[in-house]
Amino acid sequence: RNRTTFNSSQLQALERVFERTHYPDAFVREDLARRVNLTEARVQVWFQNRRAKFRR
Rank of each mutant, 00 (worst) to 15 (best):
R56A: 11
W46S: 05
A13C: 05
S9A: 12
N37E: 07
E15R: 01
A52R: 10
S9I: 09
P24E: 02
D31V: 05
P24W: 02
Q48Y: 08
V45E: 15
P24N: 00
T5A: 13
F54K: 02
R34M: 03
F54L: 12
R55M: 13
R1L: 06
R42W: 07
N49D: 12
S9N: 10
V28Q: 13
N37R: 02
L11P: 00
R34Q: 08
Y23T: 06
Y23D: 06
A52M: 12
N7M: 01
V45T: 10
A41I: 07
R50E: 14
F18P: 04
A26E: 13
N49M: 11
R56Y: 05
F6E: 12
A33W: 05
V28D: 11
L32P: 07
F6Y: 10
L32E: 01
T39Y: 01
K53I: 15
R3L: 11
Q10I: 11
N7E: 11
W46Q: 05
L32C: 01
L38E: 03
K53P: 04
S8C: 07
F27P: 10
R51A: 04
T5Y: 12
V17T: 11
N49R: 07
R35S: 11
R29Y: 10
L11K: 05
Y23F: 07
R29A: 10
R35I: 07
R1G: 15
R35Q: 12
R35P: 05
Q44I: 05
V36R: 01
R16G: 11
V17I: 01
R35T: 10
V43P: 00
N49P: 04
Q10M: 05
Q12T: 14
T4E: 15
N2Y: 09
R55L: 09
Q44G: 07
F54T: 01
F47D: 00
L38G: 05
R34D: 02
A52V: 07
A33Y: 03
E15F: 02
L38A: 09
Q44R: 12
D25I: 06
V43E: 01
V17C: 11
T21F: 07
V43W: 08
R16E: 15
A41Q: 12
N7G: 04
Y23S: 03
Q10C: 02
D31H: 05
D31N: 09
F27Q: 15
S8Q: 13
F27A: 15
T4G: 12
L14A: 01
E40Q: 08
R34I: 03
D25R: 00
R50I: 11
F54P: 07
Q12D: 15
A13P: 03
N37P: 00
F54H: 14
N2V: 03
Q12W: 06
R3V: 10
R34W: 04
R1N: 15
K53H: 07
Q12I: 11
V17S: 04
A41F: 05
N7K: 01
A13T: 07
S8E: 15
N2L: 05
T39N: 08
R51T: 02
P24G: 03
R42K: 12
T39A: 05
F47Q: 05
F47L: 02
N49T: 11
V45H: 14
R34N: 07
R16N: 10
N7T: 15
L14P: 02
W46V: 00
D25M: 10
F6W: 05
A41N: 07
E40N: 02
S8F: 09
A13H: 05
L38D: 04
Y23P: 04
R42V: 15
Y23I: 03
F47K: 10
N37M: 08
T5I: 14
T39E: 10
L32T: 04
R3A: 05
A26H: 15
T5P: 14
V43Q: 00
A41T: 15
R35M: 06
S9Q: 14
R50Q: 13
Q10W: 05
R56D: 15
S8M: 08
T5S: 12
E15A: 02
R56T: 10
E15I: 00
L14H: 02
D31L: 04
Q48V: 08
K53L: 11
N49G: 05
Q48L: 11
R20M: 11
W46I: 01
P24C: 02
E19T: 14
V28F: 01
Q48F: 05
N37T: 04
A33G: 05
S9R: 10
R20D: 08
L38T: 14
R20K: 15
R3Y: 14
V28I: 11
L14E: 03
R34G: 07
A41K: 06
V43R: 01
Q48A: 07
T4M: 07
Q12N: 13
R20F: 13
A33M: 05
F6V: 11
A41Y: 12
P24M: 04
A13R: 02
N2W: 06
T4A: 07
R29S: 06
F6I: 14
R55V: 10
R55Y: 13
P24Y: 01
S9P: 09
R51Q: 04
R29C: 13
S8L: 09
T39V: 03
Y23H: 09
L11C: 07
A33I: 13
N49W: 09
S8T: 13
T21N: 11
Q44H: 05
V28A: 10
T4I: 05
L32Y: 01
A13D: 08
Q44W: 04
T39G: 03
T5Q: 12
T39P: 13
T21R: 01
N49C: 09
A52L: 08
R34E: 09
F47E: 04
F27L: 12
R50D: 01
Q12M: 11
R3P: 11
R20A: 12
D31C: 09
F54D: 13
V28M: 12
A52I: 03
R42Q: 15
E15S: 00
R51C: 00
T5D: 13
R50P: 04
V43C: 03
F18C: 01
Q12L: 11
R16M: 10
N49S: 11
R42L: 14
N37W: 08
T4H: 15
